[in-house]
Every structure is written in C-alpha cells, then in structure tokens.
C-alpha cells in the first residue's frame, strides 16, 4: 500500500482570545496560505479535505460548514469532518491516501475556546445519563486523576511543577506559543491550588487556535518537500467511558496504540497532555526512554487550541523531520476526559 508523508504544517498563533468568529475562517485563511506557499500547491491540487472541530465550542449547529468558506469550495470538493481533534481527521485522510483514492490531502482543525466556558462545555462529552447531568468540569476530573497519582506515590507536586517549568522554557523558542519563559519551580509550588490538587501551572490554558497539515503519497511528497516526514505508523485506541471503572493513573489505550506503531528509536515526542500529570502517564505508557526529548515546542501546557492541539503535536513532530533536525519522531493526540482516547503516530525521514 502507498506510504503517506507529512509535507507541510502550520498553526495559527495560540492566543487566549481572538476577535474572530467561531467558524475559524480568520485563523484558517492565513495558515492555508502558509502551507500553499511552502508546498507550491493550490487548492485545486488538494485531493481530499478533512477537518476537526466542535459545534459545542461554537454554540451553534454545523459551524464547520462555514469554515469550508476558508477553502473556497467551488467547484465542489471531496470533504469530510470529525467532531474530534483534527488528529483523527488526519487518520481519515491517511486512509484515503493509503487506499489510493487520492494522492494529496489537507487536514485542519480549529476552535474558539474563548466563546464559551470551556471546562463547563466539556462536561457535555461525558456520559449523558449518569455523569453529564452533574456538570463535572474537565479541570475537576483531571484533578481527581492527579490526586490518585499523588497519593499513591506515582508522582509528586514537584514532578508536575518541573514539567510546567520545562514546557514554559521550551515555549519561549516557539513564536506561536501562548506564553513561555523561565520560571522557578519553587515559585510555582508556592502558589495556591485552583482545583485542589491542581495549581494554575498544571492546567493547559484556554486557547483559540487552528492548525493545518498537508499529506501526500510518498511518491508525490518528494516533489513537495525536501525531507518529507513519512508516517511509519498511526493507531488509535479507546478506553471505557465509565470513569470510575478505569485505573486513572494508567492509559491502556495509549499503551496499545504505542505498541501497535512501535516507539523504539524515537528521538523527539510531542505529547498531547493538557495537564502536567498526564504527560507522565502518556510517556510511561509509550515506554519512552529518558533520553527522548519531550515537547520541544512547549506542548499543550503553553497553548491548548481545542480540536487542533492534537493535530499540532503531529505537526510539530513532523516539522523536526521536515527541518532535518531528527530522523524519527512521535506525535500523540488525546480526546475525551482523563486521557480516554489516544492516537499515536511515528514519523520517519523518507
């Protein structure tokens, strides 16, 4: 079957609030231009389009249809959408190319998290009979997960603060990150919890943003990028939605997806962990060695654009290969509460 490669990646600035609409057009048009310029492709060259976004974030039905305006969808295009992080849209586009239906695909995700009250909106992804009617917010659920690890000795508050400090330090080198810079671990630990046991630095910010990736068949990719990032494997798995039936300090779905793609030899990993302790869970389940560089972009803790943060992890991992800095990298995306669903992809120099 056809190999598939990432040939370009771009993301909108991660910001706390945009004045743009919830259909994402203002964030998408400039980054589409970026990937067109980089690849020399124009919209009529794209064989398949796939996006990830959510009407719950926008507060209106079929909001993703308006985003299609950003494409210029005439004559009619071959298009699909997932109500999930666009990492799963990338999976669908990967399949289309694997099957030989098309040889190029453009994948994008967008979300204006600031339009509503994000952690409350995210309650609605929970079981609609016995959980969502209580409105447990996403931060509180992650906080219960963090406590399980703290009280069992899996991690300490210092471990978590060190992850936050490293992320912010790395984000200083990422012009699209929401914030970054040097922070003192002791100073972070000196702050009060905002959702006991989580402190502000343990929680990814609320972010408006968007990201785009262009995929091509390996054959086509050679014309579009100097060093295409070939997808060596991509898998996703899911755990039960029953939160109280899971051991929340583990993520079997991450482990299974990682085992299916094979994580040996990875030099850099971009992990989609919106809470500090979740990075430790994912890292463990993927069996990443200490030498593996985690989230050189600053990661989700310094910019968490809903429905594109997972795609951006794959994009950041691919960019290291496109730039010639690495030969084997890993991108991870998560969806649902407390790391319920996970996608893992390994990228390689072609």
């Amino acid at each position: 079957m056809t190999e598939v490669a990432v040939v370009a990646f771009a993301q909108a600035p991660n910001v706390r609030r945009t004045h743009g609409t919830t259909n994402g057009v203002e964030m998408l048009v400039p980054i589409f231009d970026e990937v067109y310029t980089r690849t020399g492709l124009s919209k009529t060259d794209i064989g398949f389009w796939c996006s990830g976004s959510s009407d719950y974030l926008a507060g209106r039905a079929f909001s993703f249809i308006s985003a299609v305006d950003a494409i210029g969808a005439f004559p009619p295009i071959h298009e699909s959408h997932v109500e999930m992080d666009a990492a799963w849209a990338l999976y669908e586009a990967w399949l289309k190319i694997r099957m030989g239906e098309v040889d190029t695909a453009l994948v994008y995700g967008f979300g204006k998290s600031s339009a509503g009250e994000l952690r409350r909106v995210l309650s609605l992804q929970l079981d609609p009979y016995t959980v969502a009617p209580l409105w447990p917010d996403s931060v509180s659920i992650a906080a219960m997960q963090a406590r399980l690890g703290l009280e069992s000795g899996r991690w300490t508050e210092t471990d978590l603060a060190e992850i936050a400090a490293r992320s912010r330090r790395d984000a200083a080198g990422n012009p699209r990150a929401q914030f970054g810079g040097e922070t003192d671990v002791a100073a972070l630990l000196d702050t009060d919890p905002v959702a006991d046991p989580l402190r502000r630095h343990d929680i990814a910010p609320v972010t408006d943003g968007a990201a785009v990736i262009v995929l091509a068949s390996a054959e086509r990719a050679r014309d579009l990028a100097d060093r295409p990032a070939v997808i060596g494997g991509i898998e996703h798995r899911i755990d039960t939605p029953s939160l109280g039936a899971r051991d929340l300090t583990t993520s079997p779905s991450t482990r299974l997806a990682g085992e299916a793609v094979g994580t040996d030899g990875v030099e850099i990993a971009e992990l989609h962990a919106p809470f500090t302790h979740q990075e430790l869970i994912v890292r463990d389940e993927l069996g990443l060695a200490d030498a593996v560089r985690i989230n050189p972009s600053g990661g989700t803790l310094t910019g968490n654009p809903m429905f594109s943060a997972g795609l951006a992890r794959i994009g950041e991992a691919a960019q290291r290969i496109l730039d010639g800095e690495a030969t084997r990298t890993l991108g991870h995306a998560t969806s649902g509460p407390a790391l319920q669903q996970n996608l893992v992809t390994v990228l390689e120099r072609g």
Partner: peptide
C-alpha cells in the same frame, strides 16, 4: 472516597452551589 478534587466556585448546574468536592 477513592479520589477527590475541590471546587472553590461551583459552575452553573453543578449539584452543590457552595464550595464542594467532586469525588469518585
């Protein structure tokens, strides 16, 4: 209680409308 987290400012619709704990 297996695990818990503290809510200092309850959100609309949450069962208890004064500071409370979520718990498993």
């Amino acid at each position: 209680i297996v695990s818990w987290s503290w809510v200092a400012e309850p959100l609309a619709g949450q069962p208890v409308q004064r500071p409370f704990a979520w718990a498993l």
